[in-house]
Design a protein around this nucleic acid. Structure first.
Lengths: 240, 240
DNA sequence: ATTCCCAGTCATAAGTATGTAACCGTTACT
DNA sequence: AGTAACGGTTACATACTTATGACTGGGAAT
């Protein structure tokens, strides 16, 4: 696990629990990041004014000003990625759905690897986006596969040009598969990467797959896109 | 659903209670992992020096050297995933884990299935990550032998460019042989490495070999790829 | 309150893969 | 040539994996 960093990125950690805050700081520093701390939203916004920040990790529940309000505030001025921390996955879906402007979320308790993966991923995306926005807007946030077109920015999927309504979970599954065309994911893997938690059973995935097929396939009985690989998992078939 | 494991991963179990240690070992072995044991942190570090370890399961409370100290020590040199075993599910334990570099937690008491799920999940992440970091390098998850091409990511085999459908077991056998071109495996060896259990009879292998030949060989009677070595076993012939 | 939508669970059906056994060919050696 | 040991082939019952439709409960929208 080695971060590739030419620049030194600065990360702001906003979290009222001092132990967690320090834990995150130590870990991020060990990965070569510069770290600033704040104990609540107001302190956090103050830090952003004073320092150049490339990414913020923000807890939702905090005294004085909570993470949601803080994120909405900072978004008026800044574009850097915000990763939210929340206690349970209940609220997080709402947060994402509400389009507060957070880019990702991690549910507590989390492991270092989880957090690290998301920090790296967001920074990668952010820095690439920044560079490209000056030239042509060649977007890697639009995924095309035959007649399927998934747009990450508008969160929309079209089949042969016709928009298709996906539920949040369906969207996440399709996104994962379309980001990796041809690659096979086991049901467990899909579960872990979409839900961010251990898989309990694979029935859930099967049902979602069926529902997705009903929406995107001309003939769901003989899928053209979302195929099963027997005994292994599912994949999005590359189109000729 | 069983993961496809052609490589034998080595797991170190560090736990002072001998019964638990042995219990874990039995389950891990049944899944095809190589297992090493240690009764405390000092022994554990010793084992890591002597063997190549891909994942460690470490109890927190142990005599002589506890799991936290041990994990901090091993992190100075190694990056493989560490799963901690702890008595309480207190969040503070997990915060401590953030500081020391553990990747996941299982709270005692746990079921074998729980532990297994986490072990598989962590190894999946770890190996995936390792592969991603070497983006430029020609992928070691694609194996080519003459007209045969096997891709581990898409779980596909093509013969002269044409895709061939393999069953899970056929796939595992082909993968094992193609990863070791020219190397001869006895039927027993193939059985043990694909099934992760003792071979009872070799008929099964023979049948699978025939079925594979029917799929990948132009003339199955005179195999070009999957050859028999009389009285010894089977191999994938290196191609000129 | 009522309706609607989504996520998850379950029972059952449909579809594949697998192991076994019986039988046929080949090879190596006397 | 005879024969014993080994490898190849075929067929089929059984076991697994995946697909499907119906049902439940929770939450949001009306």
């Amino acid at each position: 696990m080695e971060p590739i960093k030419q620049e030194q990125y600065s990360i702001l950690v906003v979290e009222d629990d001092k132990e967690i805050r320090n834990g995150i700081e130590i870990f991020l520093r060990s990965q070569g990041y510069e770290v600033y701390q704040a104990a609540d939203g107001i302190e956090g916004l103050e830090m952003i004014k004073q320092h150049e920040i490339h990414l913020a990790i923000v807890d939702i529940m905090m005294p004085r000003m909570n993470g949601i309000t803080m994120t909405m505030e900072l978004r008026k001025e800044h574009e850097f990625p915000v990763i939210m921390l929340s206690a349970k996955s209940e609220e997080t879906d709402k947060v994402i759905g509400l389009n507060i402007g957070a880019d990702d979320y991690v549910t507590k308790p989390f492991t270092p690897l989880e957090l690290m993966a998301r920090v790296n991923s967001q920074l990668r995306r952010y820095t690439r986006f920044k560079n490209k926005s000056q030239t042509v807007v060649e977007n890697d946030r639009i995924h095309i596969l035959g007649g399927l077109e998934l747009n990450e920015d508008t969160v929309e999927l079209t089949v042969d040009g016709k928009p298709v309504k996906l539920t949040p979970i369906e969207y996440k599954i399709v996104l994962l598969l379309m980001k990796n065309p041809g690659k096979v994911f086991s049901a467990e893997e899909i579960y872990e990467r979409v839900w961010n938690e251990m898989a309990i059973n694979t029935d859930t995935i099967m049902v979602h797959v069926k529902n997705i097929r009903d929406k995107i396939e001309i003939n769901p009985k003989e899928p053209k896109y979302l195929k099963v690989v027997w005994g292994v998992g599912y994949k999005m078939e590359k189109q000729p």
